[in-house]
Design a protein around this nucleic acid. Structure first.
Lengths: 148, 148
DNA sequence: GCCAAAATCATCCGAAAGGATGATGTCGAA
DNA sequence: TTCGACATCATCCTTTCGGATGATTTTGGC
């Protein structure tokens, strides 16, 4: 949370500084309140939404997903297996993305972490699943009903 | 999304109107830019975060639609897809082994060909399926009913 | 506030995978 | 017999994976 506070502080400061600088140089000051107000509002609304999204991002992976495959019933994650293997939510999330065929880099980009982080998650996951390769991890994951 | 735009518009208008009203009555106009900027920033950041939270919360309320086809029916390879993509039997065979999590070397050993051969089969397969990685090939293969 | 689990990131290094290309060999159809 | 599809193998080179290790930061409970 500290990071966020800092972020806001800095951002606010920057915006205000920018406004001051601009005010005395290029823009007419008439009706500036509306203009600047709108500007600030827009910027902070954007940042706010972004932040809000980030805050809750992947809060819980317990969401049950439905599959379009017309041959199988709804997927229900086997919580027992998850607990027995000690697989964390993040690891599950990444396993799913691997099953979708993403590379480590792509996974990092979609969940907003570095490729390195993805790799460490994977290392641990492999160990927990007893897998030597990502394809094997996917196979085991499906077998144990960790992923659809 | 229209609702959000409207919401923001109205809110922005309200805030600015409020500011105007206040400006001419109670507050000193000196340094008002900073004060109002901060105010607007705070308000919109809050609203933004709140909105962001709402957005993701809604996303988590995923509905579970489901098809009621009987449990596992035997797998039937989609010959049409196979023909359409021009995938050869050997390539299919290897794709299945990949889906089981085998490495190229292991596949070569189980099918009695060299690792190099496996690789060329795979290269062609990837091209036909439009896959960049083996995991992706497996995903596509399952999707198109080339493999169970 | 403190602690443990989870998540984050990095670096080094070897192994595996993937791309590009060329060369045989086999077999069935034209 | 010639041609084309399929299968086989190789070499060179780049990218991606995965293992090992160490470290910091968040976070949830107590």
């Amino acid at each position: 949370m500290k990071k966020h506070v800092l972020l806001y502080g800095t951002l606010g400061g920057a915006v205000i500084a920018l406004l001051k600088a601009v005010e005395y140089r290029y823009l007419v000051v008439e009706h500036s309140v509306e203009i600047y107000g709108g500007l600030i509002a827009a910027v902070f609304a954007t940042v706010g939404i972004w932040l809000g999204l980030r805050l809750t991002r992947a809060k819980e992976t317990i969401v049950i997903r439905e599959v379009l495959t017309p041959a199988h019933s709804a997927f229900v994650r086997d919580a027992g297996q998850v607990a027995a293997l000690g697989v964390t939510p993040r690891e599950l999330e990444i396993l799913e993305l691997i099953a979708r065929g993403l590379s480590n880099r792509e996974i990092g980009q979609t969940v907003f972490v570095s490729e390195n982080t993805v790799k460490t998650h994977l290392s641990r996951l492999f160990e927990k699943l007893g897998a030597k390769r990502r394809t094997q991890a996917v196979q085991i994951g499906k077998e144990r009903r960790l992923i659809p």
